[in-house]
Design a protein around this nucleic acid. Sequence first.
DNA 1: ATTCTATGAGACGCAATGTCTTTACGTCAA
DNA 2: TTGACGTAAAGACATTGCGTCTCATAGAAT
Lengths: 133, 133
Amino acid sequence: MARTPQDITDAELAVLNLLWERGRSTVRELTDVIYPGGSGSHYATVQKLLERLEGKACVKRDREPWPHEFESTIRREELIVRRLQATADKLCHGSLEPLLTQLVRNQTLSAEDRQSLRGLLDELDVEAKTSEK
Amino acid sequence: MARTPQDITDAELAVLNLLWERGRSTVRELTDVIYPGGSGSHYATVQKLLERLEGKACVKRDREPWPHEFESTIRREELIVRRLQATADKLCHGSLEPLLTQLVRNQTLSAEDRQSLRGLLDELDVEAKTSEK
DNA sequence: ATTCTATGAGACGCAATGTCTTTACGTCAA
DNA sequence: TTGACGTAAAGACATTGCGTCTCATAGAAT
């Protein structure tokens, strides 16, 4: 069984999380937050992580300003969905429904929560019906 | 940033999935399914994976019969919840609610998925009503 | 007894990942 | 222009996770 590398590693995620918070940033700005009072090599570490994120199409580099500025090209929500799907693939033959079941069972939802959830489901039903013709 | 090992690896998961399907099994039975016509060393591979799963308290070994029989001590649902929580920890400061939102918004939910979710919500309504008095 | 299979401990090797080094380059102040 | 300083870019390096494999020993069966 071949080993499958992680899509986005923890260190990379730390950078992405910061980009989501701060928006467009330089390597230095990110480094100073992730490694406060960090040495010179930490700068290179963050740079490498950004480079790898760029390779994974999760980050876009703007070479126009100097120093370069980085920006995430993936939204947090997209990554959430990606991870959910990965979990479903490995544990539920790709079906997301069991995840939903566990989440609903596990979380204490108020009556209002349940109602609004039903509303959302109704919306989805309508969308499905209108798009199928 | 220290590297965090995966809780359960893909190869280990393949074994667990089989145990969930078949129930209590011997090493040979599992090996013959995972590596059909596999060589002798594949047997040892499965054995090692079981040993590691045992160390992670996901599998119980019964030394009484011969050959030994293995059984999973964790349910698929527990593992799902664990992975969901891990995703929430890394992407949502530990909150599961954003996962739920994404799952429901995601149009990959089939009509049947939506129906079964409604059923689940109904169950929760009943539980809430009976426990509130 | 011998022969087959199972067990158990450990070695091995590749690759992923976080880190660090080095060299070249751009920008600005004197 | 030159020197100083921060940045860019490429790549080397160390650790270790993880799947695999070897071998020595033990139990069962014929």
